[in-house]
């Protein structure tokens, strides 16, 4: 279903080292508009680091990254403006505990996008409605379930109308019965044509919703392709071993 479109994310020769530890060893990756790619791989393979380089939460050691045509590593680039176009959803939600759900969603609209208060509230309420939490606008994170918190976090990212949303294991911290509600929101988001890059081990969801599955190991992309191929008929021995292992775990 990967509609032909321009590349929203274009990563070339991405390397990232922490001191002497080389974590990303040359990642080449492109994501088209409206595409949903799933990144899988063993722990420590560099999946989070890859995602975090895409909005420069980590500073790449070398390589190039373009987001929606903007070279985000260019000297003098307005990184805060760039980040508004790239949503990010974290495993641990990272909601601001001292603010209401609506406060969480509107903060960046006020401070970063410089919207008026009325406008921010309107956009914020609409974003909460999109994740089915309009009625929790005044609740603080501590009063919400994990699934609800993660949906607020997704609303916080969506409110800024990003070009792409990065998800780093969005359901890993959730009790099993709460996972479904978050995946449903992601499915809805996909329907609206959002470009998404998702690190996750929700393989059923990947099979059903992903355009592409990317298998990473040891800082490189070992194999990528449609879910049927990567899960059903992996080309590489390393992919086969990994897929067999995680399939066995379910």
């Amino acid at each position: 279903m990967a509609a032909a479109g321009r590349h929203i994310l274009d990563v070339r020769g991405l390397h990232k080292s922490f001191g002497t530890l080389a974590v990303l060893k040359g990642i080449d990756f492109r994501l088209r508009e409206r595409e949903l790619a799933f990144v899988i791989g063993p722990s420590g393979s560099g999946k989070s680091t890859f995602l975090r380089c895409c909005n420069r939460l980590e500073e790449p050691t070398s390589g190039s990254i373009h987001v929606d045509g903007t070279d985000i590593l260019a000297p003098g680039v307005d990184i805060n403006a760039v980040r508004r176009r790239i949503g990010m959803v974290f495993q641990s939600f990272n909601l601001y505990p001292h603010m209401t759900a609506l406060g969480n969603v509107t903060l960046a609209l006020r401070l970063a996008s410089r919207k008026s208060k009325a406008e921010a509230l309107e956009i914020g309420r609409a974003a909460l409605a999109r994740v089915g939490l309009a009625h929790k606008a005044q609740a603080h994170p501590g009063e919400l379930s994990g699934g609800q918190q993660q949906r607020v976090a997704i609303a916080r990212a969506l409110a800024l109308e990003p070009k792409i949303v990065l998800f780093d294991e969005p359901t890993s911290a959730l009790d099993p019965e709460l996972v479904g509600s978050v995946l449903q929101v992601m499915r809805d988001l996909r329907e609206t044509g959002m470009t998404m890059l998702v690190v996750s081990h929700e393989l059923q969801f990947a099979r059903a919703a992903a355009d592409r599955v990317v298998f990473m190991e040891d800082g490189v992309i070992v194999e990528q392709g449609p879910p049927e191929q990567v899960f059903g008929a992996p080309q590489q021995a390393r992919t086969r071993a990994f897929v067999a292992r995680i399939d066995g775990h379910r």
Binding site: N80, I86, N94, L95, Y96, A108, L111, A112, A153
Partner: peptide, 13 residues
């Protein structure tokens, strides 16, 4: 650190 990252990822300085 997650609080910093969440805020910075939405474009806050």
């Amino acid at each position: 650190r997650g609080q910093w990252e969440a805020a910075r990822s939405t474009g806050l300085g």
